[in-house]
Amino acid sequence: MQLRDRTFLLLGGTGGIGQALVQPLLDTGARVVVASRTPEKINDDGVDRVRLDLAADDLPEQLASISSLYPQLDGVIHCAGQNQFSAIDQLDPAELDDLLRVNLRSALLVARHFVPRFSAMGRGDLVFVGSTFGSIGFPGYSAYCASKFGLRGFTEALRRELADTPIQVLYVAPRATRTDMNPERVNALNEALGNQMDDPANVAGQIIAAMKSDQRRRYLGWPERFFVVLNSLLPRLVDKAMLKQLPVVRRFLSGASQ
């Protein structure tokens, strides 16, 4: 997809991968509108700032307001997300609702809003940042995996629904990434399991590359890409591998990381 002279709405641009995307997007010659619950915290030069709460009941109305302010918007990058490392019996219902609203519900409502507008413009791109955990269920991440599995399925269905239109849909699935979204015990868990963690700037660069090369889906990291395929073909092998890791995961779930 062409990025120069485009106007992208960036969701989740105040931290982690989203924040790392800002400058690379600007470097391509794109205009960037960063949406956040706290736009006053956006310190990047050269961007527009708007207030948007992806978990809000009135999200459709908020999106309509942004479209009115920026009718030239012809791309959206949904990079917002919440994580939750918790045993199933320890899930907080309020936190669960918020996670599902931000990670999944908001993605559907964003597409619902922008698809007809992009169709009328004759162009438009929707980029959704998912996770390896959208393809591999991992103990301690049942809620997060549910939201990311849902996001992956949604983008696949949406891509096929729009296959005869000029609207492009891209799904990018990073592996573990060092962001403030992860509490310290999650970083420690990844280190204990030997999981590699990517820098947000590296992930942002791969997202830009996928956009430029008109990819439809991109999974990041090795051996994570291999395990995504293996899990879809021979899930019992992945079951056995994770069973060996389960005592370590349970130790961190209980908070006894030492």
Rank of each mutant, 00 (worst) to 15 (best):
S68Y: 12
S67K: 10
I66N: 05
R49Q: 06
V50Q: 08
D45M: 13
D57R: 03
E61V: 09
L63M: 09
C79F: 07
N43E: 15
L69K: 14
V76D: 04
V50R: 07
D48P: 01
D44W: 01
D48C: 08
D57F: 04
L52Q: 02
D57M: 11
V76S: 11
L73I: 15
L59H: 03
Q72I: 09
G75V: 08
Y70A: 10
A56P: 01
L69G: 08
G75D: 08
P71H: 11
S65K: 12
D57W: 04
R49F: 02
D58M: 06
I66D: 03
S68R: 13
A55V: 05
S68H: 15
E61G: 07
D53Y: 00
D45E: 15
G46T: 06
D44I: 03
I77Y: 03
Q72R: 11
Q72M: 14
A64C: 09
A64F: 06
L52M: 12
D45W: 09
L63T: 00
D45F: 12
A56Y: 05
L52A: 07
H78P: 01
Q62I: 03
Q72E: 15
N43I: 12
D44H: 12
A56Q: 08
D57H: 09
A64G: 12
A64Q: 08
L52H: 01
Y70S: 10
Q62S: 09
Q62M: 10
I66F: 03
V47T: 03
P60I: 12
V76C: 13
H78G: 02
D44K: 02
S67E: 08
L54S: 02
L54N: 00
A56G: 05
A55M: 04
S67D: 13
D58H: 10
D48A: 14
L52S: 02
V76E: 00
D57P: 06
A55D: 06
A56R: 09
V50G: 10
D57A: 14
D48N: 12
L54D: 00
S65L: 12
Q62L: 04
L73S: 08
D74P: 05
C79R: 04
E61S: 13
V50P: 01
I77K: 09
Q62P: 07
G75R: 03
Q72Y: 06
I77S: 11
S68Q: 14
S68I: 13
D53K: 01
Q62G: 08
S65F: 07
A64I: 03
I77G: 11
D58T: 05
A56M: 07
L59P: 04
D45K: 14
I77V: 15
D58S: 04
L54I: 07
L73K: 03
I66L: 10
D58V: 02
L73N: 02
P71T: 13
A64P: 02
I77W: 04
D44Q: 13
A64N: 10
P71Q: 14
A55H: 01
D53F: 00
S65N: 11
L54H: 01
I66G: 06
L59A: 11
C79L: 10
D44N: 12
A56C: 10
V76W: 02
I66R: 00
P71V: 12
V47A: 03
D53Q: 06
D44F: 07
L59R: 07
S68C: 14
E61T: 09
S67Q: 13
D74C: 13
D58P: 01
L73E: 05
